[in-house]
Deep mutational scan, measured.
Amino acid sequence: MDVFMKGLSKAKEGVVAAAEKTKQGVAEAAGKTKEGVLYVGSKTKEGVVHGVATVAEKTKEQVTNVGGAVVTGVTAVAQKTVEGAGSIAAATGFVKKDQLGKNEEGAPQEGILEDMPVDPDNEAYEMPSEEGYQDYEPEA
Rank of each mutant, 00 (worst) to 15 (best):
Met1Tyr: 00
Met1Ala: 00
Asp2Pro: 01
Asp2Met: 05
Asp2Leu: 08
Asp2Ser: 02
Asp2Tyr: 13
Val3Met: 11
Val3Asp: 01
Phe4Asp: 00
Met5Asp: 00
Met5Ile: 00
Lys6Arg: 04
Lys6Cys: 03
Lys6Gly: 01
Gly7Phe: 13
Gly7Asn: 08
Gly7Thr: 09
Gly7Lys: 08
Gly7Glu: 11
Leu8Val: 04
Leu8Asn: 00
Ser9Met: 15
Lys10Cys: 02
Lys10Asp: 02
Lys10Phe: 13
Ala11Tyr: 15
Ala11Lys: 00
Ala11Asn: 00
Ala11Trp: 15
Lys12Phe: 12
Glu13Lys: 07
Glu13Thr: 12
Gly14Asn: 05
Gly14Trp: 04
Gly14Lys: 05
Val15Leu: 08
Val16Pro: 00
Val16Phe: 10
Val16Gln: 03
Ala17Thr: 06
Ala18Lys: 04
Ala19Asn: 01
Ala19Ile: 03
Ala19Trp: 11
Glu20Ala: 13
Glu20Asn: 13
Glu20His: 09
Glu20Gln: 05
Lys21Phe: 14
Lys21Arg: 12
Lys21Asn: 04
Lys21Met: 11
Lys21Ile: 09
Thr22Lys: 00
Thr22Ala: 15
Thr22Gln: 00
Lys23Asp: 00
Lys23Cys: 14
Lys23Val: 05
Lys23Pro: 00
Gln24Glu: 07
Gln24Ile: 07
Gln24Arg: 13
Val26Lys: 00
Val26Glu: 00
Val26Met: 09
Ala27Phe: 10
Ala27Met: 11
Glu28Leu: 09
Glu28Ser: 11
Glu28Thr: 09
Glu28Gly: 10
Glu28Cys: 14
Ala29Tyr: 14
Ala30Arg: 02
Ala30Cys: 04
Ala30Val: 09
Ala30Phe: 10
Gly31Val: 03
Lys32Gln: 08
Lys32Asp: 00
Thr33Gly: 04
Thr33Val: 12
Lys34His: 04
Lys34Asn: 01
Glu35Lys: 09
Glu35Asp: 11
Gly36Asp: 02
Gly36Lys: 15
Gly36Ile: 13
Val37Phe: 15
Val37Cys: 09
Leu38Met: 14
Tyr39Ala: 01
Tyr39Trp: 02
Tyr39Lys: 11
Val40Glu: 00
Val40Asn: 00
Gly41Glu: 01
Ser42Ile: 13
Ser42Cys: 07
Lys43Thr: 05
Lys43Pro: 00
Lys43Glu: 01
Thr44Gln: 01
Thr44His: 02
Thr44Trp: 09
Thr44Glu: 00
Lys45Trp: 15
Lys45His: 01
Lys45Ser: 06
Gly47Glu: 05
Gly47Trp: 12
Gly47Asn: 10
Gly47Gln: 12
Gly47Ile: 05
Gly47Leu: 08
Gly47Pro: 01
Val49Cys: 05
Val49Gln: 06
Val49Arg: 12
His50Val: 02
His50Ile: 02
Gly51Ile: 13
Val52Phe: 14
Ala53Ile: 10
Ala53Thr: 04
Ala53Asp: 04
Thr54Val: 14
Thr54Asn: 09
Thr54Tyr: 11
Glu57Ser: 07
Glu57Gly: 04
Glu57Asn: 05
Glu57Trp: 09
Lys58Pro: 01
Thr59Ile: 06
Lys60Val: 10
Lys60Met: 12
Lys60Thr: 06
Lys60Ser: 07
Lys60Phe: 04
Glu61Trp: 10
Glu61Tyr: 13
Glu61Arg: 11
Glu61Met: 08
Glu61Ile: 05
Gln62Thr: 05
Gln62Gly: 06
Gln62Leu: 10
Gln62Trp: 04
Gln62Ala: 08
Gln62His: 11
Val63Asp: 01
Val63Phe: 04
Val63Ala: 05
Val63Gly: 02
Thr64Leu: 07
Thr64Ser: 06
Thr64Tyr: 10
Asn65Cys: 06
Asn65Trp: 11
Asn65Thr: 10
Asn65Val: 09
Val66Trp: 14
Gly67His: 10
Gly67Ser: 06
Gly67Arg: 14
Gly67Gln: 15
Gly68His: 15
Gly68Ile: 14
Ala69Val: 05
Ala69Phe: 15
Ala69Lys: 06
Val70Leu: 14
Val70Cys: 02
Val71Phe: 08
Thr72Leu: 05
Thr72Glu: 15
Thr72Phe: 04
Thr72Tyr: 13
Thr72Ser: 13
Thr72Asp: 15
Gly73Trp: 11
Gly73Ile: 09
Gly73Gln: 15
Gly73Ala: 14
Thr75Leu: 14
Thr75Met: 09
Thr75Arg: 06
Thr75Gly: 08
Thr75Ile: 05
Thr75His: 08
Thr75Val: 13
Ala76Val: 05
Ala76Met: 05
Val77Ile: 14
Val77Phe: 10
Ala78Gln: 04
Ala78Val: 12
Gln79Ala: 08
Gln79Thr: 07
Lys80Ile: 08
Lys80Leu: 12
Thr81Cys: 10
Thr81Arg: 04
Thr81Glu: 02
Thr81Phe: 13
Val82Asp: 04
Val82Met: 11
Val82Thr: 04
Glu83Lys: 06
Glu83Asp: 03
Glu83Pro: 09
Glu83Ala: 15
Gly84Arg: 14
Gly84Ser: 08
Ala85Glu: 04
Ala85Phe: 05
Ala85Met: 12
Gly86Ala: 08
Gly86Arg: 15
Ser87Thr: 13
Ser87His: 10
Ser87Arg: 02
Ile88Arg: 05
Ile88Gln: 04
Ile88Cys: 04
Ile88Met: 08
Ile88Thr: 04
Ile88His: 03
Ile88Gly: 04
Ala89Ser: 05
Ala89Asp: 04
Ala89Ile: 08
Ala89Phe: 13
Ala91Ser: 04
Ala91Tyr: 06
Ala91Gln: 05
Thr92Cys: 12
Thr92Asn: 12
Thr92His: 03
Thr92Phe: 08
Gly93Trp: 13
Gly93His: 06
Phe94Pro: 08
Phe94Lys: 03
Val95Cys: 04
Val95Ser: 06
Val95Leu: 14
Val95Pro: 09
Lys96His: 07
Lys96Ile: 02
Lys96Asp: 04
Lys96Gln: 13
Lys97Pro: 05
Lys97Gln: 03
Asp98Thr: 13
Asp98Lys: 09
Asp98Trp: 15
Gln99Cys: 10
Gln99Lys: 01
Leu100Val: 12
Gly101Val: 08
Lys102Gly: 02
Lys102Gln: 03
Asn103Cys: 08
Asn103Lys: 10
Asn103Arg: 09
Asn103Pro: 12
Asn103Val: 13
Glu104Ile: 05
Glu104Phe: 04
Glu104Ser: 11
Glu104Gly: 09
Glu105Ile: 01
Glu105Thr: 10
Gly106Gln: 06
Gly106Ala: 07
Ala107Ile: 10
Ala107Cys: 04
Ala107Thr: 08
Ala107Leu: 07
Pro108Tyr: 04
Pro108Val: 09
Pro108Ala: 06
Pro108Phe: 07
Pro108Thr: 10
Gln109Pro: 12
Gln109Arg: 08
Glu110Met: 09
Ile112Gln: 06
Ile112Ser: 11
Ile112Trp: 09
Leu113Met: 10
Glu114Met: 04
Glu114Cys: 12
Glu114Arg: 06
Asp115Arg: 06
Met116Cys: 08
Pro117Ser: 03
Pro117Tyr: 11
Val118Ala: 03
Val118His: 11
Asp119Ala: 07
Asp119Met: 08
Asp119Asn: 07
Pro120Glu: 10
Pro120Gln: 11
Pro120Trp: 03
Asp121Met: 08
Asp121Thr: 07
Asn122Met: 11
Asn122Glu: 07
Asn122Phe: 13
Asn122Val: 14
Glu123Val: 15
Glu123Leu: 15
Ala124Ile: 02
Tyr125Phe: 09
Glu126Ser: 03
Glu126Phe: 05
Glu126His: 08
Glu126Pro: 11
Glu126Tyr: 02
Met127Pro: 04
Met127Val: 12
Pro128His: 10
Pro128Thr: 04
Pro128Arg: 11
Ser129Gln: 05
Ser129Ala: 04
Ser129Asn: 03
Ser129Pro: 12
Glu130Met: 07
Glu130Leu: 10
Glu131Arg: 03
Glu131Thr: 13
Glu131Phe: 04
Gly132Trp: 04
Gly132Met: 13
Gly132Lys: 10
Gly132Asn: 14
Tyr133Asp: 09
Tyr133Arg: 02
Tyr133Thr: 13
Tyr133Ser: 03
Gln134Tyr: 11
Gln134Met: 14
Asp135Cys: 10
Asp135Glu: 10
Tyr136Val: 12
Tyr136Arg: 15
Tyr136Ala: 06
Tyr136Met: 08
Glu137Leu: 04
Glu137His: 06
Glu137Cys: 05
Pro138Glu: 02
Pro138Gly: 10
Pro138Trp: 06
Pro138Val: 06
Glu139Leu: 04
Glu139Lys: 11
Glu139Ile: 09
Glu139Val: 07
Glu139Gln: 05
Ala140Leu: 10
